[in-house]
């Protein structure tokens, strides 16, 4: 009889979960799929760069100088005769790393902060969100510039500084999510069953709050990458010998009259990545039916 009951349930036709529905919707969105494909491709290349880059990172060919795209150097070379493709590949590692690491920092702080404020509520919530409000009013862009000027151009500091800005929105989204969900009757039902708070958070709150967080995370990565490129362009971000797309664009802009490819290809790499992330983010927003995140 037991086995029979288990079999009956196991053989019942499976329902379609919201995640599966979302995936089906995402699959129909060509732009989002394109974004996902391009992004995966770039990430793969970034991971494999040390092994697949056509030239060494520091290889120079001063005799060659800046040369347009050719069979040997697909994207041309810079003024020191360095292969541009190689430069872009190594630069991409830094740009993507900044994007993902700083976003993770923001995600970690923001989600924790927002979840606690939203779940505990009352005075704790008021105090925590008041702090977020005050930080929100600070002109952070200028602060980051200041920070980079004062403490030197340090990659770790860059991660932290950018992460420190972006977590605010994340905290707000997470808090409003948790607050909305907490008032939902299924959470009340879970309380009335007698579930401990930790299980309620794990089983009922987090899976339902995940959609907006995923969407907003996807949309935060491009804005973080932009911030890094912006700082690097001003000479306040990544420093040689390291490089990033922002830095390459900055060099390219200096010599664009004579060697336009030095501007165009790094610019293309950055723009394409930003496009992909934004398309994917918008696609996820539609697929997960998330309203209001990221706009």
């Amino acid at each position: 009889m037991n086995d029979q009951a288990i079999n009956m349930i196991a053989q019942a036709p499976p329902g379609s979960s919201l995640w599966r529905d979302a995936w089906h919707r995402l699959k129909r969105n060509r732009l989002a799929l394109f974004g996902l494909a391009v992004l995966s491709f770039f990430i793969l290349i970034a991971l494999l760069t040390p092994w697949i880059a056509p030239y060494g990172y520091a290889d120079q060919n001063l005799d060659l100088g800046a040369s347009p795209p050719s069979a040997e150097h697909w994207l041309g070379t810079d003024v020191f005769g360095r292969d541009l493709l190689t430069q872009i590949m190594y630069g991409g590692r830094i740009s993507l790393a900044v994007g993902f690491v700083a976003t993770s920092v923001a995600l970690l702080i923001g989600v924790t902060w927002g979840a606690i404020a939203g779940y505990v509520g009352g005075r704790v919530d008021a105090a925590m969100m008041r702090m977020v409000d005050i930080l929100y009013a600070l002109p952070f862009m200028i602060f980051i510039v200041l920070l980079m000027v004062v403490f030197g151009r340090n990659l770790i500091l860059l991660f932290l500084a950018i992460g420190a800005v972006e977590w605010l929105t994340m905290a707000r989204i997470m808090r409003s999510q948790v607050q909305t969900l907490r008032q939902q009757e299924f959470v009340e039902a879970a309380i009335s069953i007698g579930l401990p708070a930790s299980t309620i958070v794990r089983r009922h709150l987090i899976p339902n709050a995940l959609g907006p967080i995923i969407v907003y995370t996807t949309l935060t990565i491009p804005s973080v990458m932009l911030l890094e490129a912006f700082l690097s362009f001003l000479g306040l971000g990544v420093q040689p010998p390291q490089t990033s797309w922002g830095l390459l664009i900055s060099y390219g802009a200096e010599t664009m009259e004579e060697y336009p490819w030095l501007l165009i290809f790094p610019g293309l790499a950055l723009t394409l990545t930003l496009f992909s992330l934004n398309f994917l983010g918008d696609g996820l927003r539609d697929a997960l039916d998330v309203r209001g995140a990221g706009d």
Binding site: L226, A229, F230, I249, S250, G252, A253, L270, T271
Partner: peptide, 10 residues
């Protein structure tokens, strides 16, 4: 959105 000012400008 994807074409930042430091790229669009040049």
């Amino acid at each position: 959105i994807c074409m930042p000012s430091f790229l669009l400008g040049p």
